[in-house]
Each structure stands twice: as structure tokens, then as C-alpha cells.
């Protein structure tokens, strides 16, 4: 047994060493290819291009520009899928009541104090990831998930009672979630509505001025690039994600007394 363990240890160490040696010699080829593919080069050239606005989204972050501008419709349906999933979770537990005063006290004072230190940091970091999504890596979904972690921490550390007391009720969360989705919908057709009203040509999911349409979202905020719809999409998406994920977690964390009635009445619960 001893010899076998030794053999395993030596072989693992040898594997790591030899693999490192092979990679160092370039035996697996360059890990990051040196040459950009044409499509990547085109996106990099057009993402922020004030001299060719009709093909640009005027944002500094290529990933966000592709996700919310060049393939915005796809991302819209991704968000809808997430919404449908959350509605599904809420439907499974339909008829539950949120009870106060079940005696949840949360974790100990040490953990609570450490979490209190952490709360503003997580909130600021998540908000900045979402709001700066068109400038730095990140975006609405990432920032929203970041803030949802904070809500999960609140529920776990301070108990569900505390969360309900602070106003994290499921109806309110669902309302915020729907507001975020409506905001995304309105942002995507905002220029179309403006075009119809003004009698000019416009497209769905239009961001900057395109061929055949001079309408444009604002591309600068003071001295910062704004990315037009990207900024709005990120803000609304982060709202939708933080409320949706929090709602899911709260529903999954419900106590027995709260789901008893929903489970007992069965399928036909009014």
C-alpha cells in the first residue's frame, strides 16, 4: 500500500513536470493563438469607431457590445428564458405564505458583524460591474449575480425573517424583476417608437445611427462613452437578475410552515 501511494505521487509529479516541459517547449502549440481571426478583427475594429458610427456601438467593451448590440435579440431571449425559469420555480411553490416571527435568528454575532462589513463592498462592486458594463469586463448579468450573492448572504446570515422585515418579499421582487424586463423591452424598441412618431426610419434593437436611419441613442455622457442602449440594457438586466435570483433563493429557502399549506392543498390550490 505504501509503495503504491508513493508510485502514484511520483507519477503525478512527473506528469506535471513533463507537461510543463512540453508546454514550455511549445509542443502543444502556442496556448493563445497569435493571429486574430477575421471576425474577431472586424469586431475589434468596429466596437468603438467614431469614424464609422453606422457599424459601431461606441462602447469600449467588445463582449458587452456583441452581447447586447450585435446579437441583442439572442440575449433578450436568454433573459426571457431566465425569467420563465424563475416563474417556474415560483409556480412550483404557488400558494405559499410568507410568515413572520418563526424565530429565525440567523448565524452568530461574529458572522453577522463580518457580513455587515462586507455588505456595502459587495453592493458597490456589483453595481459598478453592472453600470460600467460597457467600459470594463462585466455587464448586467454579472453585476446582478454579484448583488444576488449579497441577498443570499443576507438570507443565510440574518435569517429569512430579517429579509422579509427589510422588504425582500417575493411579490416586490417579482415586481422589480418584471420592471427590469419591461425596461429591456422598452429600450429595445425605444428608437423604433421614436422613429414611428417622428416619421423617420428606425430598427428594433437599434443603438447608434445605422444605414437608412439617423436616429441614435446618446453615445456620450459628459466625457465618458455611454454606449447608448448598452448602458440601459445593463442597468435593467442587473435589476432583473438580482431580483430574479433572490426570489428563487428565497423560495428555495422557505421554512416548512410556509409551504405546508401549498403542498397540502395539492394541485388545485386557490
Amino acid at each position: 500500500m505504501k509503495a503504491r501511494e508513493l508510485l502514484i505521487a511520483i507519477s503525478i509529479a512527473l506528469m506535471v513536470l513533463l507537461l510543463a516541459y512540453v508546454i514550455e517547449l511549445g509542443g502543444l502549440g502556442p496556448l493563445a493563438p497569435y493571429a486574430l481571426r477575421d471576425i474577431a478583427r472586424a469586431y475589434l475594429e468596429y466596437v468603438y469607431n467614431p469614424w464609422n458610427v453606422t457599424a459601431s456601438s461606441m462602447a469600449l467593451e467588445a463582449v458587452t457590445a456583441i452581447v447586447w448590440d450585435y446579437r441583442g435579440l439572442d440575449t433578450y431571449f436568454e433573459t426571457s428564458v431566465l425569467f420563465v425559469a424563475i416563474v417556474g420555480v415560483a409556480t412550483l411553490y404557488r400558494g405559499y405564505r410568507e410568515l413572520r416571527g418563526l424565530g429565525g435568528v440567523g448565524l452568530s454575532e461574529i458572522v453577522k458583524t463580518s457580513t455587515r462589513v462586507l455588505i456595502p463592498l459587495i453592493l458597490v462592486a456589483g453595481a459598478s460591474i453592472a453600470i460600467h458594463g460597457h467600459l470594463t469586463p462585466g455587464g448586467g448579468f454579472q453585476g446582478g449575480s454579484f448583488m444576488a450573492v449579497l441577498m443570499v448572504l443576507l438570507v443565510v446570515v440574518f435569517s429569512l425573517d430579517y429579509a422579509f422585515e427589510k422588504g425582500l418579499t417575493s411579490s416586490r421582487l417579482l415586481a422589480i424583476r418584471s420592471a427590469g424586463l419591461v425596461g429591456i423591452l422598452l429600450t429595445s424598441v425605444a428608437l423604433l417608437i421614436a422613429g414611428v412618431v417622428a416619421g423617420a426610419g428606425a430598427y428594433v434593437f437599434q443603438n447608434m445611427a445605422r444605414e437608412g436611419s439617423d436616429l441614435s441613442m446618446p453615445s456620450w455622457f459628459l466625457d465618458r462613452p455611454l454606449g447608448g442602449t448598452l448602458f440601459l440594457f445593463n442597468v435593467f438586466e442587473s435589476l432583473a437578475v438580482v431580483s430574479g435570483l433572490t426570489l428563487t433563493f428565497i423560495v428555495l429557502a422557505l421554512r416548512k410552515e410556509e409551504v405546508d399549506q401549498a403542498l397540502a392543498t395539492g394541485e388545485w390550490c386557490e
Binding site: 448565524l107 452568530s108 461574529i110 458572522v111 458583524t113 463580518s114 457580513t115 462589513v117 462586507l118 463592498l121
Partner: peptide, 15 residues
């Protein structure tokens, strides 16, 4: 941050 959080995590686990 790690100094604040690592001990809280261990404390919560142990408790």
C-alpha cells in the same frame, strides 16, 4: 478582507 472573512467562515462552520 480575507482576514475579516476567513475566521468568520471557520467560526460558522465549527458552530
Amino acid at each position: 478582507l480575507l482576514m475579516i472573512l476567513a475566521q468568520a467562515g471557520s467560526h460558522a462552520l465549527a458552530r
